[in-house]
Simulated scan of single mutants.
Amino acid sequence: MNATTHAVKLGLARGWIEFRHSLTSSTDMYFNAFVAVAFVVVLYFQREVKLPGTDVSLAAATLPSMLALLVAVGGLVGTVGTLAVEREDGTLLRAKAMPHGMTGYLIGRIVSTSTAGLVTLVIVLVAGLILVPSMLGTGLGGWLMFAWVIVLGLLATLPLGAIVGSLTSNPQAAAGFSMLTIGALTSTSGIFYPITSMPEWLQVVSQIFPLYWLGLGMRSAFLPDSAVAAEIGQSWRFFETTGVLALWAVAGLLLAPPILRRMAKRESGSLVQERRERAMQRVS
């Protein structure tokens, strides 16, 4: 077994162990439960409201967008925050010392973050299907599209989160930077209102980033064909959705490891100790 294969296996094992530990963490579970409950409450109050000019409930239109946002937030914000914490506590420094350690670290982060995010997503999906029973009629093609978009969405956003996280120096800066990034993308991606209502130049910019395509893919999986009238070109654009998300995934997986390695080269025991002392001062 060569060093790269060994690093991949260690990364997969590390990711699964971290996910199991997160299930026993009260902080992680409370946060996931809070997010799920907040989304479900919104769906509950929207279940009887119809979209103007259609027989589609507002809850049915909102649920796919919520699922897309959960994938993006879990992939981007979750990875940025964890990377900042593990940079501060010396985890990255230890990974740097192992052959292909940064590759294994990135794979472990992808596995643990994606599996943890899927727990919240499943909770919201199940509750949404109960509140919006019409969506239970989604055919096999819709469910396959749903699964396909989740896989591509996570692969597109998780490495991006690692790249963004490498630009921050502490967990506080990471949290602010990642929330600013996801907020800007959400507000311009057509996740919660039709992108066709935006200026054309903003529509073009939004289509560069993966969040728009995540939302489009989720809507194509669950919404009736009549809802496509609100989309660009009045089309679900399956091939474009797959192509753009796949392009972000490939680019991220190629760029993230060397960027993380470059960041790790600057790490040292003295820097880790200095960050720990600053963290202790913040706590006290």
Rank of each mutant, 00 (worst) to 15 (best):
L92Q: 12
G101V: 13
G90L: 12
G137D: 14
S134H: 11
G190V: 08
L118E: 01
L121F: 12
A175W: 02
A95I: 02
A116K: 15
L140Y: 15
M198G: 09
V73H: 04
G101E: 08
M145D: 04
I130L: 12
S112V: 02
H100E: 15
T62M: 07
S169V: 05
R87S: 06
T168H: 01
I191T: 12
A84L: 03
E88M: 11
W143Y: 13
V85D: 00
A147Q: 07
A174R: 07
T82Q: 12
T138M: 13
S114P: 03
T62K: 02
L70A: 06
G141M: 06
T113N: 15
P194I: 07
L155T: 11
G81L: 10
P159A: 10
A147C: 14
Y105M: 02
I110H: 14
Y105D: 08
V151T: 14
M102F: 09
S134L: 08
G183D: 10
G141Q: 08
S112Q: 08
A162D: 05
A95M: 15
L63K: 01
S197N: 13
G139F: 13
S114I: 03
L144F: 12
T186G: 03
G183Y: 03
S178R: 06
L93M: 12
L185S: 00
A174E: 05
L69A: 13
V126Y: 06
A127L: 08
P194M: 13
T91S: 15
S178N: 07
L180V: 13
S187M: 14
I191Q: 10
L70S: 08
S112K: 07
T188M: 08
H100R: 15
G128E: 08
H100A: 13
P194Y: 02
T196C: 04
L83F: 10
L67A: 04
L67H: 08
S189V: 00
G141L: 11
L129Y: 03
K96T: 01
A162N: 01
A84I: 06
R109C: 02
G165V: 00
I130G: 00
P99R: 11
W148S: 14
V151N: 00
A116L: 11
P133D: 06
A162F: 04
E86T: 02
W148H: 01
I123W: 15
V149F: 09
A147G: 13
L136T: 15
R87A: 05
G190K: 01
G161S: 10
G137E: 14
P133M: 11
G142S: 05
L118H: 01
G190D: 05
S197M: 13
I182Q: 01
P194N: 02
I191H: 02
G81I: 04
T196K: 10
G183C: 01
M102R: 04
G81W: 09
N170G: 06
L167T: 12
V164I: 15
E86G: 04
L185K: 03
G165T: 08
G176N: 13
T157Y: 00
A84H: 04
M179L: 14
T196G: 01
T138H: 01
T120C: 10
F192S: 08
S134Q: 14
G139W: 14
S189L: 00
L144E: 01
M198N: 12
V132M: 04
T181E: 00
Y193P: 05
L160Y: 08
M66N: 15
L129T: 04
G139K: 13
